[in-house]
Simulated assay, not measured.
Amino acid sequence: MKLDEGTIEKKLLHFPDWDYYDNAIHAEFEFDNFKDCFSAMSRIAFECEAQNHHPNWSNTYNVLKIALSTHSAGGVTEKDFKLAEAIEAIVEVEE
Rank of each mutant, 00 (worst) to 15 (best):
M41G: 08
M41K: 03
A27Y: 00
L3F: 05
H71A: 08
E5W: 00
D19V: 15
A89E: 14
S39K: 13
E47A: 15
K79G: 05
L68H: 00
L83W: 08
E78N: 15
D22L: 09
D22I: 09
H54R: 14
E30C: 04
K35N: 11
H54W: 06
H54C: 09
Y20H: 13
N62V: 04
M1Q: 12
D19R: 12
D4M: 01
V91P: 07
D4P: 05
L12S: 00
L64H: 04
N56Q: 12
A73K: 11
E5A: 02
G75I: 07
N62Y: 00
N33Q: 09
D36V: 02
I44T: 10
F15T: 04
L64S: 02
A89D: 12
R43N: 13
L64E: 10
R43S: 09
Q51Y: 02
F34D: 10
K82L: 12
K11V: 03
D80V: 07
P16R: 08
I87A: 07
F31E: 07
A86P: 03
N56T: 15
L3A: 07
I44H: 01
A89H: 10
E49F: 08
F38H: 06
Y61R: 09
L68W: 01
N56A: 04
Y61S: 08
F38M: 14
A27N: 06
D80Y: 01
T7G: 02
D80I: 05
D32I: 08
F15W: 00
S72T: 14
N33Y: 10
E49A: 13
E30Y: 00
K2H: 03
N62M: 04
K2R: 15
H14L: 13
K11R: 15
E92A: 10
R43T: 05
A84Q: 12
M1R: 01
I8T: 03
V76W: 03
D4W: 02
E9M: 10
A27R: 09
E78L: 08
F81K: 05
Y21I: 09
N59T: 13
D19G: 02
H53L: 12
K11W: 04
C48D: 10
F34S: 11
F38A: 13
A89Y: 03
T70N: 01
L12K: 11
L64F: 08
F38Y: 11
I8R: 00
L83E: 14
D32Y: 00
E88P: 04
E30P: 01
E30N: 02
A84D: 14
Q51T: 10
D36G: 11
A40T: 12
V91I: 14
A45K: 00
L64I: 07
K65V: 06
S69Q: 01
S72Y: 02
D4V: 09
P16Y: 08
K82G: 03
F81W: 09
S58A: 10
A40C: 11
